[in-house]
Each structure stands twice: as C-alpha cells, then as structure tokens.
Amino acid sequence: MCKQQVTDNELVARFIKGEESALQSLIIRHERKIYTSIYLLVKDRELSDDIFQDTFIKVINTLRSGNYNEEGKFLSWVLRIAHNLVIDHFRSLKKMPLVHDTEEYSIFDTLPLMDDNIEDKIILEQIHKQIRVLIEELPYDQREVVIMRHFGNMSFKEISEVTGVSINTSLGRMRYALINLRKLIKEKDLYLNVS
C-alpha cells in the first residue's frame, strides 16, 4: 500500500495553525525546484542563496498574515515570489542580466538516478550539465518562460499574467527557447540519448 502524500494545501493550513514541521516539509518538497529556478535566472550561487531565503521569509510572513489564497498551487505561488525578487534585484542594479558563460560545474548535482549502469549515469549527468549550460545561454525572457513552465508548472496563461505579456508572446518565447536549444544541441553536436 502506498502512503498518500499530504497535499501542499494541508501543509500550508498546518503551518498557519502553528505546526512548524509543516513548513519544513514544504521546503524539503519544493526546495530543489525553487532553488534551481532562482539559480538559472541569476546564475550566481550567493545571490541565489539570498533570494531563496528572502522568498521563504515572504512566504512565511504572507501565510501568517492570512493573505494566501492560491487554491492549491503553492509551488507556482512561491516561484512567482522568487521571480519578483529576482526582478527587484536586477532593477536595483538598473540592468537586466547579461548572458555569460560559466565554468562552475562542481556545485551542481542531478536528481538521484535510478539506473544502475554507471556509464549511463555519467552520460546522463553530462547531458544535464550540457542542457543547463545551454539554458544559461538563452536570452533572459526565454529562460524565464522555460523555468516558469517546467519548474513552476505554470500554464502559458499564468506565465503571461506574471510576466505582463500576452499568451502568444509567452508561447513564442518558449518556442524560440526550445528551437534555440535544439539548434545549439545540433551545432555543438551533442548527443541526447542514453542507451
């Protein structure tokens, strides 16, 4: 028998009632997606740490103030807070991020792999690193849509509301992002298959 997982909404309700362990469960459940999203936007480990903490401070304060009414999409809501903090950061610098390469691979780790074959694991890790580096090469607006859709599970409609553009623009950005990634993969002759 599978133990049914407590929903985000239940955990949120428990935390509001004062059960601190519920917050811990929410963080453990979503921290990788939230942190990965922030890092892919700002591309700096220390800044990601700061924004990650500030995001949860806002989450805690908002939940306690009774202003949370997201009806079930906790992760999307948290990612919107993180996204706004990223934008605030770039606004404070009075510039949007420039695209730059990074060689800092060591800080990354991929999801636990199920495959026992070591060679496959190495290939898969390489693919994840390559894809991550390619995402970093995308223009900011394309990266943003990719992150919101794939890490925040937001629909294109929701993304358009958060970013203040039309649904077609959001969709177009995703299309460009994926086509750009495909083009880069072909140009760099990357092989995406694991045996």
């Binding site: 990788r32 990965t36 949860f56 800080i107 780790d109 999801l111 894809i131 994926l178």
Partner: peptide, 20 residues
C-alpha cells in the same frame, strides 16, 4: 530536451533551510 530540462536540479545548502 524538455524531459532533460525538468531533470535539472540544483540543491540548496542545508544551512539555508535551517536558517529559514
């Protein structure tokens, strides 16, 4: 490509969670 994107995962330091 989208399958691999969703598998990218960067883990925050445990100390961050404790701090929160």
């Amino acid at each position: 490509i989208t399958g691999y994107i969703q598998e990218i995962s960067i883990r925050p330091a445990g100390a961050l969670r404790e701090s929160i």
